[in-house]
Design a protein around this nucleic acid. Sequence first.
DNA 1: GCATTTTGTGAAAACGTTTTATCGAGCGTG
DNA 2: CACGCTCGATAAAACGTTTTCACAAAATGC
Lengths: 341, 341
Amino acid sequence: MLTQEGRPTIPTIKDVASEAQVSIATVSRVLNGNRRVSPDLRTRVLAAMDRLGYQPNAIAQGLRRNATRSVGVLIPRIHEPFFSTLAFAIERTLFASDYRGLLCSTEEQPGKERAYVDMLLTQQVDAIIYFPSITGSQPNLQRIVEREIPVVLIERSFAGFDVSRVLISNFQGGYDGAQHLIGLGHTHISVICANLESMPVERLSGVQQALSEARIDADVRIMNRGSDFETGYEAALEMLQRPARPTAIFALADSIAVGVLHAAAYLDLRVPDDLSVVGFDNISLAAYVLPPLTTVAQPIYAIGEAAVRVLLRQLQNPDAAPETVTLNTELVVRQSTAPCR
Amino acid sequence: MLTQEGRPTIPTIKDVASEAQVSIATVSRVLNGNRRVSPDLRTRVLAAMDRLGYQPNAIAQGLRRNATRSVGVLIPRIHEPFFSTLAFAIERTLFASDYRGLLCSTEEQPGKERAYVDMLLTQQVDAIIYFPSITGSQPNLQRIVEREIPVVLIERSFAGFDVSRVLISNFQGGYDGAQHLIGLGHTHISVICANLESMPVERLSGVQQALSEARIDADVRIMNRGSDFETGYEAALEMLQRPARPTAIFALADSIAVGVLHAAAYLDLRVPDDLSVVGFDNISLAAYVLPPLTTVAQPIYAIGEAAVRVLLRQLQNPDAAPETVTLNTELVVRQSTAPCR
DNA sequence: GCATTTTGTGAAAACGTTTTATCGAGCGTG
DNA sequence: CACGCTCGATAAAACGTTTTCACAAAATGC
């Protein structure tokens, strides 16, 4: 197909219709296969499409159908291993159901998160998977709910919002990790976590519960930044140089734990002999770092799958009640923890 | 805005027009600000928009304007650290220019890559950033070029396609990494790389060039899989258990190098005393692993920025000639390499 | 003060689909 | 043979915008 200037032009349903000598309605029908059309016309249309290399215009379809088969995916920081794995799981599951994901890395900046929500709404997404960063997320969620767009929250709840959620046993996970260290005889346990925007408080509460049950003072350090290596390194460097240094550190994210390992090495402390370290998440790296990291595993892939599954169910049946699925964490013991000497 | 059933309905430009007692053309004009409209009407329209909470429908705009302000981003495996960082850079730069990225993780599956290209075309993206996985990518690129959609290839070239590219000095990087090991006196150097789909051959060529100049036999192991920890671990485990074990391993991706470190530890070999390891990429993890990894750094963030910059230039000026920008790698010496004993 | 340009506004066409309403042909039924 | 039915196909409306065109009013030039 060429315009008179010789530029290629993309064929429309109209072109197919005239090529096949049928009406555009007929073309549309063989395209969607929802109504009967006689065999000979069908083959004529198919042949015409093939000759012209026709591809339907999803934008036009979206406008007419009022559905785009796209879902917004709001995630704090795509470059962190945990989130990139989660994004991968979501993308893959959506793809399998012929939905596309609009991936938005909010970077925990309220402005960016807000802008992205706006964008998703104007973009007419059919649904939204939302991993909020708490501050400022509530009004965003409000706007989504007002538009009656199906939404599933990941690892977060908001009072007063009756929406679908995929949660994990953060409290139990925190509890289990701390218990593990307590069971090994540690009594001076430090906890490092990222800003509470990107970290569910329950995780921390679980830790504190376990510690208080064992009558151990909680030494918690909440860093005002994301869960990256640097964060863990800086926090640990400071903690490990105090006069009474901890014999164990519970990092509430694997990335932080890796930073801790690094700091320990820098200070010539051996893990796990001089220091036990427990992480959280079980990112794929955790098994490969030295020493391999004992960690509280999240079923990252399952979380992504569950989120999509819940969403699809809601899309099929818009009047269904919101659904909450809870997945369990599991302590994976590797070689970064040992009994306290 | 409510329908008679009480369901909320999203306000359109029409609603705004009747609310403000003007024509829809006027509303459109204050929306786009491209033509003059008298101050009092403007304020009336703005007020009406505000009252109704109007948000333009990007799908309708896309159909009418024949431009969607979205660009497709095709990337092999979003969950690998290198690619997730690259995706982050791209996403961030696009966002700053008010474009959205449709992130597609092709997983190096020809079928999925093809399906995603199809999807992007039907989705009417304005441009495409393409990190191909070689096999089967050529016909995909062909289809993109036929549609005259601006495209920029990352780290790849295809003979016969005159399209924009962002390249890095892969050959030089490979050469430099090998030179570093040679300079340290190593003569038994093994090389591990992922499948050549996801790895530019030039990188390997650079290594081989340096080795042959130094009259050292090349011992190359090409794994038929992606660049993950497991890959490096398995390859190294095998190589390091041979009778004549190498004194240095050049892993052509950091993720692989991390697997190598793990294998070395498993075999009780100390790095760098018993084995020197060089990586490639300089993912953020590289500095935090133990020992910190000597690696050939790619300017990952700059690559993403450059790709977007080139693309935007091409969108502004569709008749501009394709552009190629080449960025340099740089050897970063840390503590995983030492003189051969 | 008339002809001409400029300015602001609205009506309507267009973008590429899907879907509703319509219509004509074939066909058994009374 | 008129009648109602079904079936297959088409014409046309609709989705929410932008933009072209037309037009009146106001501003400008002689």
